[in-house]
Design a binder for these strands. Sequence first.
DNA 1: CTTTAGCACTCGGTTCATGCGAGTGCTAAC
DNA 2: GTTAGCACTCGCATGAACCGAGTGCTAAAG
Lengths: 346, 346
Amino acid sequence: MELDARKLRILQAIIDDYILTASPVGSRTIAKSTDIGLSSATIRNEMSDLEEMGFLEQPHASAGRVPSDKAYRLYVDSIMRRAMLSPAEMASIREHYSKRFSDVDDIVKQTAFMLSSITKYTSMVLAPRLHAARLRYIHIVPLGDNRALLVIVTDAGLTRDFLIRTPKSMDDYDIDRLSSLLKRRLSGRRLDEIASMGLSELSGELAEQRAFLDAMLASLSGGMDEAASRVELSGTKNILSYPEYNDVERARTLLAAIEKKDMLYRMLAGRGDVEFTITIGQENENAEMKDCSVVTAKYRVGNEPLGSFGVIGPTRMNYARVIAVMNQIGMSLSELLTNMFEEERK
Amino acid sequence: MELDARKLRILQAIIDDYILTASPVGSRTIAKSTDIGLSSATIRNEMSDLEEMGFLEQPHASAGRVPSDKAYRLYVDSIMRRAMLSPAEMASIREHYSKRFSDVDDIVKQTAFMLSSITKYTSMVLAPRLHAARLRYIHIVPLGDNRALLVIVTDAGLTRDFLIRTPKSMDDYDIDRLSSLLKRRLSGRRLDEIASMGLSELSGELAEQRAFLDAMLASLSGGMDEAASRVELSGTKNILSYPEYNDVERARTLLAAIEKKDMLYRMLAGRGDVEFTITIGQENENAEMKDCSVVTAKYRVGNEPLGSFGVIGPTRMNYARVIAVMNQIGMSLSELLTNMFEEERK
DNA sequence: CTTTAGCACTCGGTTCATGCGAGTGCTAAC
DNA sequence: GTTAGCACTCGCATGAACCGAGTGCTAAAG
């Protein structure tokens, strides 16, 4: 059977309507709401065909039709037209990003918040990978009791600290010496360079502290990964607004699934090369999310993709709008971060 | 009418049953389930009296009775007996606190998580006020572009950083000098001392940087307040498990109310002098929470109460158990924090 | 061959009556 | 004061009747 232009048009009308109303769409609705100029009977025939082809499903015999995952896939791949945001919305996003942020974590949180409030879906934002950041400052603060705090500051004022154990043999003075040595040797380098640095490069004057340095670099690189894998969630309670989750039990299982941050992380971090990913319903690896779609996008610092963000909603989500919003947010976010980081390098 | 021992006993039985089942309790249930040795008719009479006195309510004429807020108030004030945790539970809490934490924020998060998983209610934890902490290390990292990062490390390895603006007239060298001067002058002092410090004490050699110092101290003390007012929430989705929130709409309004962190903050920070506070149903200032009870408690560092934590649940929450759990967690938490801080002072 | 009007049919949701059961309130007897 | 007994009250579950949205099919019109 052929998927001709008319079938496509009808399918689009059904999807558009279903995205809006969340209730099965009947042939008469389509006949009236579009200017397609066909009677409901004709549309009925076409809908029957579309069902046979797997694009539509009937919840029960006498109900209207509901788009299948396959239909949404077709929709996002070929039918959907790019949506435009209203100037007011675009301005509002830009304005959000024009204010001062205290640090990168703050930006991540605000982005998640904005994304969920604009789209009314659940949003998630992955913190930027620090690998491309440059070390601006490093210091070891002895805490006594064989512990010390490794404090680093990178470009853009990003700070991280790591609790490390110090060898018994080192006293505060040694730590201080080591600290200023590290500062001299590592300042200005990229963090990933430092993390993967052969000890040989450092060990010249520091041979005796080899084990300690080893542990330190390990915790630094571990900390980088950990920080990058932190997923900021926002708007989880939006899920409760959608009729598909009117049943508390369903809502709860979905919420429980979403709290598994490692799964979200895989979703966000996966598929390294593409700009946008759209995962629809059963395409999700997770069974609990088979009624959800996930849209993710990357953001950049300069030209390097350093993080990503996404939206979780029902399969009947407003893809066009979500993509438009994410596009705008991605641009503003990338620009902001790029400025913050580049500013430091000039 | 007199609230005699028998009435009390019946009321207690009703409350106990209702806490367990969430459905109205009938006279026969009480007659059978307790060894009170009265017929259902007698209990019926007593229940009628209790209703007249305002301790019980009838959802509708032919249903059993439900305890009123007033009943819960009486219950927690005088009827309730302290519950004991099982040794296994106590051990599990202690074990949780025996592992290494990376920092105070981590402890706060873990505490919130534990509290909600053990009680199955929603939990909240207020980060400790830093006022009593001592400054161990302070440094200003110039970031260029008239900005700098003020990094402080306190007892117990707590780090905070604040972005500050530097006067045009200062170059990196000035900042460095100022930084080490501050370190010499402020190390070992309590943060609240520092924040409220008259500039006169510092201005001797630093007169020319007066405005800058002023701004710095302000942002330090602002940062302390802000950090302390951060409320960590956990287990919000537990709310969905309770039959009183089977209706998605109700659940959503409650969840929306709970997300207002400033309200939670007021709940946790208020009532400065008592150890435990219990707020039942309509006693809550917030109308959305009129079916909820909130239990809060303080935790200490040494002898100073530096923070608090709490549980939000339905009014029919298991108060005795919640208090037992919070007692245990409060002790373990206070002990852990005290050790972390004291260790630094010895 | 395509489109459309017409019609029988399907099936979920609503409404309404019915019955059941849990629970009460009252009364009279113990 | 306590209790047995009984009429009464409602919420809730069940099932019948009905409605309406929607379909599928057929036959006629284009």
